[in-house]
Design a protein around this nucleic acid. Structure first.
Lengths: 221, 221
DNA sequence: GCAGAACTTGCGGTTTTCCGCAACATTGGC
DNA sequence: GCCAATGTTGCGGAAAACCGCAAGTTCTGC
């Protein structure tokens, strides 16, 4: 899991909670910044010292109660941070819910995740961190429609057959018969297992239960 | 499973398919009627002979290409059949998609199931038969909103915690820790297993995957 | 047609889940 | 309090799912 994480967020309460979440996930070095400028400075210092941050979690809007700031907000911070350290993973954690904003962040600035400060953030944030760690992009469910997810698995006919059988209650070990009946090529039990494993992996899941929930959420089945 | 089943349905193709489905499920005596009057007659005869039908599967609308029919349609048939044999299980299989029609059938005539002749009927019909056999009421997902399901399991806080953990990807064997943390009484692994088993059973499922799909469909999680 | 890549399959061992059983704990009348 | 009913827990064995590996097959590009 991520070792060195920087949080840029000016609400103390949110800050504390994000911190706890990160600690639970095993981050060993966590720093917080209440202003964008401070955050950038911390990134610079860490870079110079040869121990750069692995992940930046940032809000989009900050109070501007300190004059003379260079960076106007989270977007500026992201741009500056990426210039400084292109491989840095960036997770935006914000209440902004304009889908266009989100998709622009993903497409233009290549952020790795966007968690909406909404009713599900408590689940989403840890999930997002995990996804990003696995090299995926995570966007809160509510805003996903806006972003043609780059790592969304393309569900083939074959995949859907398998998943539908699971939902019908068919035991995995019996799915090969169904597959064979329908004339699919890869109809062995091992293939079913492998395929399910691949799909789960592609989406950053470990259990079929997650996969089913995902498919339902996305109207795949 | 049901032994003696009567199908009232005037479309030959549908008829055949329903028949096959029933055979797959192990029904030993299946009769078909193309008119409501015929269906009722068959019910009467079977009753007099002391070997009544267990299940009636009927459409709602029939072609009226035979004059002098007593029964005008599926609804009449249901009423007459129930008068004759109150404990008879009735499954309506129809293209009618007015939610009010469905809920009235369930509430006023006490039908045991309604499968909509729609894109999912191939899955729904077998499921409906199983549910009904287990004493449940089954209504196709598309029309469920109309009917306050009478056998829906009441999901407690405890249940939802368990299921949510599954959806998060928590291994079943690790759920006890979560439960304990939240101060639930039954926090042993065996309790989790047992509870999941009970819920699955109450809903006529055998696998967690089905349960997750159900919960998503019903907005339980 | 051939070599290499990609895919498919069976095998075997591990992990996880499932489920009956019996011991123990808790609850609710009386 | 006491008994019965109900709920909870641990145990142990069976079933199912998981996953690496290696052998076999099919697909490509040249």
């Amino acid at each position: 899991m991520f070792e060195r994480v920087l949080i840029a967020e000016d609400h103390q309460s949110v800050n504390r909670w994000v911190l706890q979440t990160l600690e639970k996930q095993g981050a060993s070095y966590i720093r917080q910044a209440h202003y964008c400028d401070d955050a950038l400075k911390l990134l610079e210092i860490a870079g110079k010292e040869g121990s750069p941050f692995d992940l930046l979690i940032t809000d989009l809007s900050f109070r501007e109660d300190r004059p003379g700031q260079k960076l106007a907000g989270g977007t500026d911070l992201i741009v500056a941070a990426r210039k400084l350290q292109p491989e840095l993973k960036v997770l935006v954690f914000s209440a902004e819910e304009q889908p266009t904003v989100v998709s622009s962040l993903v497409e233009r600035f290549g952020i790795n995740g966007y968690v909406w400060k909404g009713p599900r953030d408590e689940e989403d944030l840890p999930a997002a961190i995990q996804h990003i760690f696995r090299g995926k992009i995570f966007v809160s469910r509510e805003l996903q429609q806006a972003v043609r997810s780059k790592n969304a698995h393309d569900f083939s006919d074959y995949d859907i057959t398998i998943i539908s059988e699971l939902v019908k209650g068919t035991l995995q070990k019996n799915i090969p018969y169904v597959l064979a009946e329908q004339g699919h090529k890869a109809a062995s039990l091992r293939s079913v297992e492998k395929r399910l494993g691949e799909i789960r992996d592609a989406l950053g899941f470990t259990k079929n239960e997650q996969l089913i929930a995902y498919c339902k959420d996305h109207w795949i089945i």
